[in-house]
Amino acid sequence: MPPRRLPAGLIAVAVIAAVILDLAAYWTGQAADASTVIKNTPYDLNAGVVAAASVIPLLIGIAVVSWLHSSRPVLARRLAWTGLLVALLSSVSPFAMAQDTATALTLTTMHVIVGLAWAAITLFGPNALTEQH
């Protein structure tokens, strides 16, 4: 049986939803007086950085697990779960790096949103990588 393919439509919807929700979190944080300053970074947090930080990890991760799934499906499934864990566990890091609590909460929300988009694509969607074939 051929390996399962992640549906392109689901990927597009989940990535776009992650960008929209992350931007909503960013603008909500700004409305709540988040400074959006992250210590020791060479860039300022802005809408472009938020969108890129939503899209790039998802697309790279999807490319890697999709490529691996055809030859190493067990490893791909493990990486799918690992991606979710990394997104959720890294959601505490903003509390060490943000200049203020409102910024930390904003960034934490964004980490969780991207983690949920990752899970929707790789773990729980149609042809999820967790299914045996």
Rank of each mutant, 00 (worst) to 15 (best):
R4S: 12
I60H: 05
L23N: 07
W27N: 09
L10Q: 14
G48D: 07
Q30H: 04
A18R: 00
V50D: 05
A53P: 06
Y43S: 10
P57F: 11
L21T: 04
G48F: 09
V37M: 13
D33E: 05
P7K: 14
A51K: 03
V13W: 11
A8E: 10
A25W: 00
I56M: 09
D22S: 14
A8I: 10
A47E: 14
I56E: 01
T41Q: 13
S54A: 14
A8T: 13
A52N: 07
L45M: 15
L45I: 15
A8H: 14
D33N: 09
R5D: 11
S54C: 08
L23A: 10
R5M: 12
K39C: 11
A32G: 00
V19I: 15
V50N: 05
L6P: 01
K39N: 12
N46A: 12
P7S: 10
V50H: 02
Y26R: 06
A8R: 15
A24V: 13
A12C: 09
T36L: 10
D33A: 04
I38C: 06
W27P: 00
P42G: 12
V50R: 02
N46D: 13
I11Q: 11
T28A: 07
I62F: 02
A12V: 12
I11C: 12
Q30L: 09
G61I: 08
L58P: 04
P42Q: 04
A31F: 00
L23T: 12
I38Q: 06
V15Y: 03
L23D: 06
A25M: 02
T36R: 04
D22Q: 08
L21Y: 07
Q30Y: 01
V13A: 13
I62C: 02
K39Y: 06
Y26H: 05
G61A: 04
L45E: 03
G9L: 11
G61E: 01
Y26C: 05
N40Q: 13
D22L: 07
A14R: 06
A52W: 06
I20K: 04
T36I: 04
P7M: 11
Y43F: 15
I38L: 15
T41C: 07
I38N: 01
A52Q: 10
V37F: 12
D44Q: 11
